[in-house]
Design a protein around this nucleic acid. Structure first.
Length: 567
DNA sequence: TCTGCCGGCGCG
DNA sequence: AAAGCGCGCCGGCAGA
């Protein structure tokens, strides 16, 4: 293979699984093919090992990289064609060069893993890697014509690195102690009922609720029926949400709220969840990088992004290992300071507590006010304390507020907005545009105008939040990618191995969890300090990558979860 | 019996 | 104390 002649390997290797083998095409930096071959899974690790600088290209990491990891091959860099196309489609002016063309098949969802038709564009005579090579060249050409290609390239690299991390975390799994989880369930619900009946504690609470309502046949699991039962008992509630119930003084409230909490625990993360999602001491959720329009990750199955705090004690490292748990404090307002270049907000963000900094600046009186005002600024709060406090923030931080206010105004007009690195918000759909134009027509009925005004407001709050949430997601991608490369550079450890984490990660620190602004790293205990340093370094680097020398801090809260945790 | 919508609630 | 943004998942329910 001629590509092996270059130090660190070829610039690009386009790879696709083909049955139980893998076919690949090497390209040089100019995109010219230099080699191609087909390999068995067993041959992959040796190939990857010689290519430390190669960027691996595939249609979809979930399809290609997941199999590589099982085969024991980990790559350093990647280009995920499907994720990159989604960003480039809206980032590149479609009327400009038309560089991406109408190949909508690349914009769709990932193909099911067992689907041989992963490349929907395959014409029947071309090898599937050739389709990917064509798409890669198309994307690079589009990127070359993009206005702010430096940032956009960083976003595409970050997005693709995120896809690597998501596959690696799925392969390694989050260490999950089913016995601790079971103990929590038993404490809360009572013993597991045989045959899937109602747990004892819930049955007791249901009886208390029925007694307090004076209604022995009241049904608690159906909101409409529960609502009627509450009203019959004299409670003038409009819904059965706990937010509203909380406001009433009545003997039914406390047992009912407890019942609802336990019902939620049982259905969302009860014994059935444990049976389905935890095997061999690992929880392996399916992450969906870029699954949210803002660029945040989504998840599919297992509710990985909704693990209740109550169950956090079930996260436990293997013997001889620890879990480093780090989250970025007040990430979104800090990102807003960076992207707006607002020096006053950046000054308030100096140090650990941004809200304390806002109070110290005199903008508001208390930390709680600072928190709600900031929430209102980023989400578009209009009512209550939040709406009342936002104008004070506008006076104290006009530069930062101009960014979110401007994004809201653009959204209300029907325009699109962009994150700091260049992810574009979706355009309004046909129904929104139709409503907007109908309501703007001469003689439109007031009710229609109200509807349109509300839709405009909704969209303004969406675009307002899009720029902040999306840029925070970009910071997090840079953070993740930086942690990943630093952990790999640390090398393998001696001592006990985490065999359940798979061949690539059994002896080295590795990421096991990511949730918007939080990461967990499972590491041999001897490396814990080095991991903390890596996570801190990566956070500082993420800030520099996005905002250069602009002085905004990104402090982390870091915890170590040990084997012998006392909870 | 299946499918899609909705209320409700967990997470950030 | 606010209820403004973004998700996924569950059970119930109405309509096919």
């Amino acid at each position: 293979m001629s590509g092996d002649g270059e130090p660190g390997g070829p610039a690009w290797t386009v790879l696709a699984p083909a049955g139980d083998r893998f076919e690949f095409v090497d390209l040089d930096a100019e995109g010219t093919e230099t080699a191609r071959a087909t390999l068995t899974a067993a041959e992959l690790p040796a190939l990857v090992a010689t290519r430390v600088r190669t960027r691996w290209v595939w249609a979809d990491a979930a399809h290609a990289y997941g199999r590589m990891l099982v085969a024991g091959a980990r790559v350093a860099r990647a280009w995920d064609l499907r994720l990159c196309r989604r960003i480039l489609r809206s980032a590149v002016d479609p009327d400009g060069h038309g560089a991406l063309g109408p190949y909508d098949a690349w914009d769709g969802e990932a193909a099911p893993a067992q689907d041989e038709g992963l490349f929907p564009l395959q014409t029947g005579h071309a090898p599937r890697t050739d389709e990917a090579v064509v798409e890669l060249r198309r994307q690079l050409a589009a990127l070359g014509g993009a206005p702010d290609r430096g940032r956009l390239r960083m976003l595409l690299h970050g997005e693709s690195a995120g896809a690597l991390v998501s596959e690696e975390m799925h392969a390694a799994g989050l260490p999950w102690d089913a016995a601790v989880h079971g103990r929590i369930l038993t404490e809360q619900l009572g013993p597991r009922p045989a045959g899937g009946g109602v747990p004892a504690r819930m049955a007791e609470l249901a009886e208390e609720v029925r007694a307090a309502l004076g209604d022995p046949s009241a049904i608690l699991d159906s909101p409409p029926k529960l609502l009627r039962a509450l009203r019959r008992a004299g409670l003038p509630v409009a819904s059965t949400s706990k937010w509203e119930l909380r406001e009433y003084e009545h003997p039914v409230i406390e047992p009912l709220l407890t019942y609802k909490r336990l019902a939620r625990l049982l259905t969302a993360n009860g014994w059935a969840w444990l049976d389905e999602w935890v095997q061999g001491g690992r929880f392996r959720p399916v992450y969906v990088p870029g699954g949210v329009v803002t660029g945040r990750w989504a998840s599919s199955g297992g509710g990985a992004l909704q693990i209740p705090k109550l169950l956090r004690p079930a996260v436990r490292p293997d013997a001889g290992w620890v879990i480093v748990d780090a989250d970025a404090a007040q990430l979104e307002p800090r990102v807003l300071a960076g992207m707006s270049r607002d020096l006053a907000l950046a000054a308030a963000a100096r140090g650990r507590d941004l809200y304390a900094g806002v109070v110290a600046s005199g903008a508001v009186a208390t930390r709680e006010e600072a928190k709600y005002a900031m929430l209102g600024a980023m989400y578009g709060g209009t009512k209550g304390d939040s709406g009342r406090l936002v104008p004070r923030l506008r006076r104290a931080y006009p530069t930062a507020m101009a960014v979110v206010d401007g994004a809201a105004a653009e959204g209300e007009r029907g325009g699109t907005v962009r994150t700091w690195l260049g992810r574009t918000s979706p355009a309004p759909d046909a129904a929104w545009l139709a409503l907007s134009s109908d309501a703007g027509a001469e003689g439109a009925p007031p009710a229609l105008r109200d509807l349109a005004r509300r839709a405009a407001g909704d969209r303004g709050r969406f675009t307002r939040n899009f720029v902040v949430q999306g840029t925070a997601a970009e910071w997090a991608l840079c953070w993740l990618a930086g942690i990943r490369s630093r952990l790999h550079a640390m090398g393998e450890a001696t001592g006990p191995r985490a065999e359940r984490s798979g061949p690539v990660f059994a002896a080295r620190p590795h990421l096991v969890f990511f949730l918007h602004d939080e990461v967990m790293v499972h590491t041999p205990a001897e490396h814990a300090d080095a991991v903390i340093a890596a996570v801190q370094d990566a956070a500082a680097e993420a800030g520099r990558l996005l905002f250069g020398t602009f002085p905004v801090d990104f402090p982390l809260d870091v915890d170590i979860i040990g084997t012998a945790r006392a909870d």
